[in-house]
Structure formats: C-alpha cells, structure tokens
Design a protein around this nucleic acid. Structure first.
Lengths: 348, 348
DNA sequence: GACCTCCATGTAATCGGTTTCATGAGGGTA
DNA sequence: TACCCTCATGAAACCGATTACATGGAGGTC
C-alpha cells in the first residue's frame, strides 16, 4: 500500500507538503497541489487513518454500545446516531451488548483501547467498575435511553411519565380496571421509572394494583410470553396488559394468539416502544412512542459539544401515547365505520 | 492517559518488557510479570490499539457494510457477523449504506483508511470504481447476501431457487393462477435471481405471467405499498402477490389493510425473508426463510480463512419455504400431516 | 546593492507501541 | 579458573502520518 513517502517521491516534493495537501493547508501552491493530487491518483494512495490518529490523538470515531441490535428500537437509535455522526465527519463503531453486562464491558474496554473520541452507552445493568472508571476519565461519555444511578454523566432519554398516565386514563375510560404491567429489569432506569410512573397513574385513578400484576421481564420476547401466560393463568386475570417494550409485547401477542384469545375482547394490550409493524397488524397495537431518532441525534450532539469544549447537558424528551385499537374501541360509534372498509366498492 | 513508558518506569523495567507482558511473551519472569501487572493496575493503563496497529499493520477489526440497518434481515446478519468475529478476537465496524451506492462507497473508503483487516460488503448497486479497485487489492473482501457481476470476489449467499419453486407450487395447489412478483432492483443479484427463479417456476407450472405482474421495487416499504396499489388497480388484479423482501411485504400489507381487503380471501401474500413478526400476525405470513445467522457467520469465516492464508471459497446455502396461512388454507389433503402443530389437544 | 519580509517548502522530532539485536548475569562443565 | 550456553532484559529502529522550526528564494524598499 502506497505511503505518504511514495507520493512525495512521485510528486517530487517532501512528505510535509503531501501532508499539507491532505489537510487542505492553504499555503501550498496550486501547481504543487495538482502535482501531489496526480501522484496520489497514480499510486491509488489511501491515507492511513491509524498513523494519523496516533499523531493527532484523535480518531474521529465514536463508540456506541446498544442493548440489543435485534430490537428495532435500538436499530433505529443506531441509525440516527450514525447519520448524525457521519454528517459531522465521524465514524461510529457499534457494540452490541446483548443486554449482558460482561459484553457491555467488553465493548467499553475495546472501544477505549481503540481510542474512540467519545462514547455513547445504553447501559445494560448497574454501574460496573469499568464504566465508573471511564466516567471519571477525560473522554466524553453520555448515557442514552437509560441512565445509571450515582454516576455523574450526562444522559439523553425519553420521559414516558405523561404518556403512561395518558395510557392509564385511556384504559380506564374504556372500562378496564384490572391492569397489569410488565416492566424491564429493576436494575435499569427505564425499568424502574416506567414501573413508578405506572403505579402513580394507577393510584391517581383509584385503581388497586395487586402485587401479582406488576411483573419484571428482561426486555426480550421470551419473558413477555412467559409472564403473559402467568398473568392469564391467575384466578383473576388482568383485563389489560401493558408491556414495557416492543419485544416483550411480541411475546405477549404470541401467547395470547396461542390461546386463541381475542384482542381486545378478551384482553387488551399496550406496549412501550412503537415499532412499524404495530401499525400493520390486526388490531393495531396502542403504544407509547419515543422520539427515537431524535434521541440518537441529541446524544451525538452532546458528545460533539463536549469535544468542542462546550459544557454538555442532559436531555429529556417526552414520549407520546399513540392510541390504536388494541385496548378496545376508543369510540363506540365507530364500529360501523370499521366494517365498511371491507366493502368492495369502497376501493380508493 | 498512561503510556507504556509510564508503566515501565513505575515497574522499573524497560518498555520492551512491558510490551512482552502485554503480548504474553513467555520469556518474562513470573516475578517481573507481576510487577508489570501491578504497575498497569496502579496507573489504570489501557494499551493504545492505534499505536499497536500502526506497528503490526493489523487492526483486528473487520468492516461490514449492510444495505439498511432498519431492515431486520440486515440487523440479524450484522449480529451474526459480530458474534462470530468477537469470538475470533475481532471488532466489527458496521457501515449502513442505506441502499445508496454513494454511501456504500463512503464507507468503503473510510474503512479502507481505517485499515480494517477484512471487508464484508452487502453490495447495494452495480460495481463502483472504488469497489473494483478494492477487489484487486490485497485486503480480504467478501460479498454477503448479494453478489456483483464481473468481479472476482468470494461470496456468501442464500439460493432461493428451490424455495421459490416450492412457493409457486404451493400457490398453484391452492388454486392461484394469477401470481405477481415484486422483485428488488435489477442491479442487485438478489433482485435478478429471484425474478428469474420465479419466472422459471411459473413456466414450469404452465402459468402465464403477464408483464405487468413482474414489478421492480427497491427493497423499502414505500415501494411495496405503491406497487401493491398498482397491482390491485389492474383490470385483472393478481390473486397472489409475492414480495421480494420483508420491508416491501410490510408496505403491501399496509395497502391491502387500507383497502379493507381480506388475506388470503381477496389476495394471497407471500414474502422473501422471514422475520419474527410474520409469525405473530393474523394471518401468519408464508415466507421464504434464509439461514441469515449462518450466512453472517460463514462470511466471517471466509475472511478469517483469507487472513490465515487459506484459500477462500464462495458459500451458497439453501433458503426454505415456511408455509403459513397467508396464501390460503394449505390443507385439503395435507391436513393430517401439516396440522399437527395446530391441533388443540396437541398443545405443547 | 544591501537589507528586510513573506511565504512555499523541507528537515526532523514525535505519537505509543512492537520487534530485532545486543548484552550481561548466572549456571554448568572441564 | 576459564569457557560456553541459556535466557531475561534493555536499547533503538520502525510503523506512517503531523507539525514546529529551519531555510532559501522572490520581491519590495531605501
């Protein structure tokens, strides 16, 4: 592979001049610049980012550690982070923690060794010694989606409190009194906060929430299915089940379908996280939608702020309730309307 | 950040010795090794992978360029690639081409500059000059999922030919004669091959496929919706629509639902790519399933083979038809055989 | 013509590791 | 005691860029 030295020889200049051309240094003559460009083209020269990074102590690379790349929420987050970073001239290295603390730490270690300029973490567990050490270091760090307790790092996340309250009101208005909630792990802020918001909203509506209606899943489909089965097997099963994320909702739908139950006739379903296919199935799933892409972009901007020496501050964006049909007919009068979508002559 | 020199001073040895400890060189005394380890711990030393890579000319990093990270197929592919690479001690840098040739080239360029040890590309378009140049270079390269014409690079992909033939037979057996196919762009091998396989199978069954039943989409939801609308608006609309990937199927379902049509009563639907939610909606979608994770793992192994000096050979794995209910009741006669999963009393 | 300024370019140090080769201590043997 | 061998360790070159500083030629001023 051609090196800067080869280009210099080919163009009849010094390596310093080639470097200046590479970095758009204005003090290079038009004519010299052309000669260098010709030489680079002739040799198929590709600058070595490794060598450059060693000298400049900057890699123009950001690290992103997500919980689970198969979760569409994180996929969208990753995409937004990458888009925003690319526009700023940064490359993103994605690490998939697979919701495991050890794998999260593996990526923290690897990315630190790679000397990423900044690190965005969607934490998968409680504070680990490694994360704590990194948080005290000088490298910009931001938590995305989830925060960790007792650690002073800016975070970017959505607040679902208001939307959860709206959802409980919605369920209540439809006549549901027995509502179950499947949260994420208590070690994760998103698990704790959503549970707290749910219980508060239920209390506000004078609803009794028996202990067995508040369950802890792991943000994977399997736990959603298992817990839904347990809930439906209770002597007094809930009328509505609210799942803490889209994958657990997938599992729940599966279990409900397996039992041949009707949604929302036999049991109402709502989910945190809105994903495309929620809108494409029958009935469409009522969900709490997070401003996912915006969260990703803001996280990058927090990092870029820190790199530019500006103070980085946490960001909280609101989540929003998207009412569809999986909790019941929001409008008793609409029944007629829905069925005429089937008339042949109604073709648009 | 502590450097190897600091560790050496702290431990009272030379940098060479510290380097030996880092690389598990056996010729270091137990006692010296301990002193060095203590020094590293005391200084919170993290080796600088950038410096190491410069000297060793190896980054232990693989580049992966996928078509669209929001497409669950590519997400699963990425996850498999990453898992396999991590086990071999490699980090993966994912580039999201967003199905655009210019963005694909952006990542090819960036990853080459970063000196990844090998590159896995799911090509998004015809051969670009840059890709051609890279293919002639010495760096291991493999095409995943899709191949490019006239370029000598090993590839790892699934062959859907047999499964497509089975699907056509399945549709035929259910009485469908007017079958439409929405393929991917003709510039992509997956688009061309699937179209050819479909036409061949149709011919084998003596089916006439009018020109307007063979459409070209772009592997995104929008085109699936638009083309489905056009197909349904034909004077003689198809009885079955076969979508070339899961995102276009999403768009198709949306359009069919919007018109209030029944699946499979009014129109049958099948898709290439099987994704989790196909199995969770009503009716469940009949699809052709690719061995996605295995494809990803094999691509990594091809790269590792090349890096180890072994000759890398292309891999083709079969795709499989997964019959569900979206094309119609599958069993007048097969009832006994296929229904075993569904019998109420057979509940697992 | 002497002197100064400006500016394009070159020389060489540097980033933090790895690796080749030299070195010297220690032990074994005659 | 002299010699050799083994082996743990150190000194220094090197990877390919960037950049502080040096240099020298052109042009301007008196």
């Amino acid at each position: 592979m051609a090196r800067i030295k080869d280009v210099a020889a080919q163009a009849g200049v010094s390596v310093a001049t080639v470097s200046r051309v590479l970095n758009d240094n204005p003090s290079v003559t038009e004519e010299t610049r052309n000669r260098v460009h010709d030489a680079m083209a002739a040799l198929n020269y590709r600058p070595n980012a490794v060598a450059r990074s060693l000298r400049t102590e900057a890699t123009r690379t950001l690290g992103l550690i997500i919980g689970d790349i198969l979760n569409p929420f994180f996929a969208e987050l990753a995409r937004a982070v990458e888009d925003e970073a690319r526009e700023a001239g940064y490359t993103v290295v994605i690490g998939n923690a697979d919701e495991r603390a050890d794998q999260q730490d593996h990526y923290v270690r690897t990315l630190m060794e790679q000397r990423v300029d900044g690190l965005i973490i969607c934490p998968t567990a409680e504070v680990t010694p490694l994360v704590e050490e990194v948080s005290k270091g000088q490298r910009p760090l931001v938590f995305l989606d989830r925060t960790l307790h007792g650690i002073d790092v800016p975070s970017v996340r959505a607040d679902g409190g208001t939307a959860i309250a709206e959802l409980v009101a919605h369920l209540r208005a439809l006549g549901h009194r027995r509502i179950a909630f499947v949260s994420g792990p208590g070690t994760l802020s998103t698990g704790r906060e959503r549970t707290a918001a749910f219980l508060r909203a239920a209390a506000d509506h004078g609803l009794q929430v028996p202990e067995e209606y508040v369950r802890v899943g792991d943000f994977r489909a399997g736990s959603g299915q298992r817990i839904t089965a347990e809930l439906l097997d209770l002597p007094e099963p809930p009328q509505a089940i609210f799942l803490g994320d889209n994958l657990m909702a997938l599992g729940a739908l599966d279990e409900i379908r397996r039992r041949g139950l009707d949604i929302p006739g036999d049991v109402a379903v709502a989910s945190f996280d809105d994903v495309p296919w929620f809108n494409h199935i029958q009935p469409r799933i009522t969900a709490i939608s997070q401003p996912t892409a915006e969260l990703g972009r803001r996280a990058v901007r927090v990092i870029l702020d820190a790199l530019a020496g500006r103070t980085a501050t946490s960001v909280v964006l609101p989540a929003a309730l998207v009412v569809r049909e999986s909790c019941g007919e929001a409008r008793p009068a609409t029944k007629a309307r829905r069925s005429d979508g089937r008339r042949k002559e109604a073709g648009s």
